[in-house]
Design a protein around this nucleic acid. Structure first.
Ligand SMILES: [Mn+2]
Ligand SMILES: [Mn+2]
Ligand SMILES: [Zn+2]
Ligand SMILES: [Zn+2]
Lengths: 152, 152
DNA sequence: TTCAATGTTGCAAGCAGTTCTCATTACGCT
DNA sequence: AGCGTAATGAGAACTGCTTGCAACATTGAA
């Protein structure tokens, strides 16, 4: 068996995406995306939460960079940005299995559940078509109180 | 014909709503609600817009009072608060004919169209029921680009 | 391997929208 | 008219986020 003398490591999707836009791979960017990949989809983190998760595990990243990186990762379609209207916006790994899910939010404790519903997707499409708008995205937020919070 | 010597004017819905809560009727509160009633439903104003509409027509109201009054009128169900996620939150007269409409927003110029859709309402109800949450409200925001904004 | 070009970071200042503090004003009741 | 207390105005404060800038790090070329 022949062992190559040098490894040509495949650039990650992040790295190649950055490259063809003249952007650079940095440890900060790798760490932010890795965090989301490690915790998996279905978790919705604020910028502050991302920041404290990284710094409390010894990484040195500034909050400004977190904001810049999250915005970049959203533009690159690695992440999805949610406006759940309680506290700051939240970010989640964009899962290509469930790209169009919606959120049920407990306004007391923040617990957030996901659900999918095609009628909702179609309602958005229909509304845009009706008025001649070009659809970008539609999001249904259901504000509610969860069982644990229901009695005070 | 007998002309009464004193008129007992009916208290407005605003006034009676305030009364039974120990709250007081003020010119500011009357003006803010009147503004929405005059422009009619289907108009979505930010706090700043409410403020400048009132002050530019000669009224003296502070922005802090606008915010306080808007919140109060929402709690009293005269107004509805929208989180359209571009710029600040917006407020509209709560029309009892179309209580549960949704919004299609042009992210370029802010133009906002309304639409109703029962499947969406049901989707929210179903999601809440499924997870045992007590539903408060569900809002579908469709972000899009309007015909006038579509070519740059 | 070195180096220059330029993209990226950290920090602090800035900003937009909203809430809060507190002294003053003014409803509403008698 | 007078009193108790709710509401207002003015500005400070706060939150979530963005930006300007000097120092720094990555990349590609030499
Ligand atoms: Mn989600
Ligand atoms: Mn509306
Ligand atoms: Zn809860
Ligand atoms: Zn437009």
């Amino acid at each position: 068996m022949i062992v190559p003398t040098s490894y040509r490591t495949h650039p990650s999707p992040l790295e190649s995406g950055l490259r063809l836009d003249g952007k650079r791979m940095t440890p900060q960017r790798k760490r932010v995306l890795s965090l989301f990949e490690e915790i998996g989809s279905g978790i919705h983190l604020s910028a502050e939460e991302v920041h404290s998760k990284l710094t409390s595990s010894g990484e040195r990243v500034s909050l400004a960079t977190i904001y810049r990186t999250l915005k970049l990762l959203v533009k690159m379609t690695f992440l999805n940005e949610l406006d759940l209207s309680e506290g700051g916006n939240r970010f989640e790994l964009l899962s290509h299995d469930h790209p169009d899910h919606h959120h049920l939010i407990c306004i007391r404790c923040g617990r957030t559940e996901e659900f999918e519903n095609n009628e909702v997707i179609n309602a958005g499409k229909a509304a845009a078509k009706n008025f001649g708008f070009k659809l970008l995205e539609s999001s249904l937020n259901v504000r509610a109180v969860c069982p644990l919070c229901i009695n005070k």
